[in-house]
Simulated scan of single mutants.
Amino acid sequence: MRIALDAMGGDYAPQAVLQGALMAKESFSKENKEIVLIGNQAIIHSHFEKLGADKNAFEIVHTEDVIQMGEHPTKAIGQKPNSSIMLGFKMLKEKSVDAFCSAGNTGAMLVGSLFTIKAIPGIDRPGIAGFIPKEDGRYGILLDVGANADCKPEFLDQFAVLGSLYSKYIFNIENPKVGLMNLGEEEQKGTILTQATHQLLKNNPKINFVGNIEGRDAFNDRADVIVTDGFTGNVVLKLAETFYELMEKRNFMDPFIELFNYAGVGGSPILGVNGNVIIGHGVSTPIAIKNMLNLAVQLTEAGIVDKIKNAYN
């Protein structure tokens, strides 16, 4: 198994990325797993020397081009075809790697995936999956969390299937419960979008739809998969991440609060594209990078892309 990692992506790259790669490599040492770094070889070697690490410990795909965090995704992709992000997608498309991870420009990761490896046939809009802590110590899936700010009911219907497949094959939940985020439990409540989506979800034989859920149900066991548009999902996810920061400042921690630390999951997969793609938080720490790589291993071993393809054949 080979996992490509954008060494230059993220607010604290390349140092935090390389430290995370070293941590992951140590945990992979006795397994048939390899991390391929993409970035400026001289800079990577320099940082490895500062870290006291073997500069030849990883295969490095050299490039001097980087899509910066503030660049316009579509323009940057056209202007920088040899950037670390675009080379990662090129390798994924050519199947020389099994997964691609980056904590770099989120928009470029999303647009790059659609331009290169493309959406799985039958998927209208791939979505970014976020992970919401549950009171019983596990995670639920929130989909979408930012790829599609404006949605059609058909998109949310597909998010429900994508989230259900992920829950089944990654979280081992045999018949995951799907809830539609809304402002009330009653079927007739909500916007034009949620009302129309409700009708699609309740008639979708591929999912276990349990109806509308409210924001107060995000962290309980009412639903394993929460479906919403990318605008709402991103707000909910960022709010959840803030809980950890607030509690940490107040020195109030317990196992449930610890689950709100984004670094524990490491990244968010783009579901519905023709390859394993994981987006890391821009402020990813070495621990977050390590866990993002572990998530890439999980996705690859579970064959989640093939499971989604089979569902739409």
Rank of each mutant, 00 (worst) to 15 (best):
Ala4Val: 00
Gly10Met: 02
Asp11His: 11
Tyr12Leu: 01
Ala13Glu: 06
Ala16Phe: 11
Leu18Cys: 14
Leu18Gly: 06
Gln19Ser: 11
Gln19Thr: 12
Gly20Ser: 03
Gly20Lys: 01
Ala21Gly: 07
Leu22Lys: 08
Ala24Phe: 14
Phe28Val: 02
Ser29His: 15
Asn32Ala: 13
Leu37Met: 03
Gly39Lys: 15
Asn40Thr: 04
Gln41Asn: 07
Ala42Pro: 07
Ala42Gly: 12
Ile44Asn: 07
Phe48Lys: 15
Leu51Thr: 13
Gly52Trp: 05
Ala53Thr: 11
Ala53Phe: 02
Lys55Ile: 10
Ala57Ser: 10
Val61Glu: 12
Thr63Gln: 03
Glu64Ile: 10
Ile67Glu: 07
Ile67Phe: 00
Met69Cys: 01
Met69Thr: 06
Met69His: 07
Gly70Gln: 14
Gly70Cys: 08
Pro73Gly: 04
Ile77Leu: 00
Gln79Asp: 09
Ser84Pro: 06
Ile85Asn: 12
Lys90Gly: 01
Lys90Val: 05
Leu92Cys: 05
Glu94Met: 08
Val97Asp: 05
Val97Arg: 01
Ala99Trp: 00
Phe100His: 06
Phe100Ser: 13
Ala103Val: 04
Gly104Phe: 10
Thr106Trp: 02
Met109Ser: 00
Met109Gly: 08
Leu110Asn: 07
Val111Gly: 02
Leu114Thr: 02
Phe115Ala: 06
Phe115Val: 01
Ile120Ala: 00
Ile123Gln: 08
Arg125Leu: 04
Pro126Ser: 12
Ile128Arg: 04
Ile128Leu: 11
Ala129Cys: 01
Ile132Gly: 08
Lys134Ala: 02
Arg138Val: 12
Tyr139Gln: 01
Gly140Pro: 13
Ile141Val: 06
Asp144Gly: 04
Asp144Glu: 01
Ala147Pro: 12
Asp150Lys: 00
Lys152Arg: 03
Pro153Gly: 03
Pro153His: 10
Asp157Gly: 06
Asp157Tyr: 11
Val161Thr: 15
Gly163Glu: 05
Ser164Lys: 02
Ser164Glu: 06
Lys168Trp: 10
Tyr169Glu: 05
Ile170Trp: 00
Ile170Asn: 08
Phe171Thr: 07
Glu174Arg: 08
Lys177Asp: 13
Asn182Thr: 03
Glu186Pro: 01
Lys189Tyr: 06
Gly190Thr: 06
Leu193Arg: 09
Thr194Ile: 00
Gln195Met: 08
Ala196Pro: 09
Ala196Trp: 04
His198Asp: 15
Leu201Arg: 05
Lys202Leu: 12
Asn204Thr: 03
Val210His: 00
Gly215Gln: 04
Gly215Glu: 07
Gly215His: 02
Ala218Val: 15
Ala218Ser: 05
Asp221Thr: 07
Arg222Thr: 09
Ala223Tyr: 10
Ile226Ser: 04
Val227Asn: 01
Asp229His: 04
Phe231Asp: 07
Asn234Met: 05
Asn234Ser: 04
Lys238Cys: 10
Glu241Asn: 03
Phe243Ile: 13
Phe252Asp: 13
Met253His: 14
Asp254Lys: 14
Phe260Asn: 09
Tyr262Cys: 10
Val265Tyr: 14
Gly266Met: 04
Ser268Asn: 15
Gly275Glu: 00
Gly275Asp: 14
Gly280His: 11
Gly282Ala: 05
Val283Asn: 11
Ser284Thr: 08
Thr285Val: 14
Pro286Glu: 07
Pro286Val: 14
Ile287Gly: 15
Ala288Val: 12
Ala288Leu: 12
Ile289Met: 13
Val297Asp: 11
Glu301Lys: 03
Gly303Tyr: 11
Val305Glu: 00
Val305Cys: 02
Ile308Cys: 11
Lys309Arg: 06
Asn310Trp: 11
Tyr312Glu: 01
